[in-house]
Amino acid sequence: MIALAGLVLGIGLVLTGLQAAATALTVARTPAMSLPFESGNLPAQHAVSRFHVRWYALCVLFLAFDMEMIFMYPWAVVVAQTGATSVVEMFGFLGVLLVGVVYAWREGALRWV
């Protein structure tokens, strides 16, 4: 626990040290006010807007796997004790998920351009 406190202290020292060094050495302490870079043009609108994420189907596929991974961490620890059953069950489940991936791939979910 004390070592962890040391780690936090160390990280804090790095951040504050860099901040202090920058403040002492920097050419100008006030940040430059700038328009966002747009290839040498004035921005016409605010850039932050609802971004068309065309890989949303991939997100769903990812979530299915990601949930599975949460079970896999504890499984990794006990696999030696629980024996062949747990291995068959885990990879059977992964096989089902992989069938889903192949289906998504065939439907073109992995391509969005």
Partner: peptide
């Protein structure tokens, strides 16, 4: 600056269209 307004996209969805210039 105004916010981006929406317009139908190439797949027919109504989405925000940002005017940009490259170069």
């Amino acid at each position: 600056l105004p916010m981006a307004s929406s317009a139908p996209d190439r797949d027919g969805l109504d989405l925000e269209a940002l005017r940009v210039k490259l170069g």
